[in-house]
Simulated assay, not measured.
Amino acid sequence: MQSLRGILNFTRTAELGSFAKAAKDLGISAVAVSQNISRLEAALGVRLLARSTRALQLTPEGQAFLEQCRLPLAQLDAACKEVASDARSASGKLRATVISPVAYLYLIPLLPKFLQRYPGIALELELSEDSSPLINKRFDVGIRVGALDDAAFVARPLGPLRLLLCASPAYLAQAGLPQSLEDLEKHQALLMQITGREQTTPFIVQTRGGEAGAGARSMRFLQLPGHFICNDFRSLAQACSGGLGIAQLPQPLALPMLRNGQLKVLLPDSVAENIQLFIHYPTRKQLPARVRAFVDFVIELFAGHPDLTADISGFVA
């Protein structure tokens, strides 16, 4: 690092012809410039500048060294300008990760509008069923369930994400309608299993009463046995609409099938109401313009989407 500072001080002095002019250009004192160059000469073991009371003159070694330094310094300068330009303009690669039901139903249909508005952005999108926070991945932005417990990220709420217990009319006609959460043990559960995890994802429900008080609602996680397990919500929804059993589906994914009668909502009083969808991005004072553009776009066109809070009472079995 010291050598790089000395090289920069040396090249500016050689090009401008004096310590004073180089100091003004670099924003430091002439004494500091002279000292930095002296340290560089000591490290290299060679004299680069011949100093006199009247003028500075490059030594033969200094002239050769200057020629060798010009190209890499120009490349570094160009790299810095390119990064600064990308930060100020919405351009460059943007790496985003989004839970797949949200991506398929809402984000991907909006991408043509986003990329038309910001043609300089190259979007790299990862779809994931995993609702866990962003961990150890070099993403610029992510849409996930829940807020990150990490001071390095900002979490902006997009709206609630209800998880509905659903089944097809055909399945209910054959297996009967569950009247309580305990009844689910008697039914065929269709389960999600995130790739790389040993256990299936439990059904997340809320119940009234218990230790929290008669009117309070508490969260419960039901680990049910199932005869169908997959790692994709769309496949789970299709299996559910085909009559294979009961699945817990994100409301945005279930709504089209609820509206056309393929699915019915079960036990609506057990729907967990405090699960939230968030967009996450790093807490940087100078957030790159491409990240800011994506965050603002998502919040403008997606946050508070009516499907997230749609009334499901008309779809209850």
Rank of each mutant, 00 (worst) to 15 (best):
G92P: 02
A64P: 05
G159L: 09
D232S: 09
Q2W: 08
T195H: 15
D269H: 07
K137L: 08
L253N: 03
L26H: 06
Y104L: 04
E211Y: 09
Q276E: 05
L244K: 14
A30K: 10
I99D: 10
A147W: 00
R51I: 08
S180D: 06
A79K: 15
D183V: 04
G120P: 01
A212L: 15
G120W: 12
V205S: 07
F302S: 01
Q206L: 14
Q188K: 13
S52K: 12
C240K: 07
H305F: 04
R162I: 01
A151W: 11
L258A: 12
S29E: 07
Q276F: 03
L184Y: 07
S128G: 03
Q188G: 07
A96N: 02
C240F: 01
N274D: 08
A78P: 00
Y281I: 02
E300F: 04
P178F: 02
A170C: 10
T309S: 14
K24S: 06
F10R: 10
S38G: 13
A87K: 08
I229P: 00
P101A: 11
S34H: 09
L105H: 08
E198A: 14
R259C: 11
A216S: 08
A317Q: 15
P250S: 10
R47Y: 00
N9C: 11
Q2P: 00
V205A: 12
A170T: 13
A122T: 08
G45M: 13
G314A: 09
Q238K: 13
L110P: 00
H187I: 03
P133W: 00
R47V: 08
H305Y: 08
A74F: 07
A96P: 00
F302R: 03
I99G: 01
E15T: 09
A289H: 03
H227W: 09
H280W: 15
F139S: 07
F228S: 05
H280D: 07
G226I: 12
Y281N: 10
G45T: 14
A74E: 15
S128K: 05
E185S: 08
P288W: 10
Q179H: 12
L40W: 00
P306T: 13
A90V: 13
P306K: 08
P160E: 08
E15A: 09
L4Y: 12
L222T: 03
I194V: 13
L40A: 03
V291Y: 03
P178C: 14
S18F: 09
G142C: 07
Q174T: 05
L266W: 05
I204A: 06
I37N: 02
N274C: 07
H227P: 00
F278G: 01
S218R: 14
Q63Y: 03
D307P: 01
L266Y: 04
Q188S: 06
Q276P: 01
D140R: 02
E182G: 14
F139C: 11
V316G: 04
T201S: 10
L165H: 05
L44P: 03
K21V: 02
E273A: 11
V98R: 01
Y118A: 01
S52T: 13
V154N: 12
A78E: 11
P282T: 04
C240V: 02
R117H: 02
K137R: 12
Q116D: 13
R51D: 13
L66P: 10
L73T: 07
Q262M: 05
T11E: 05
S18R: 12
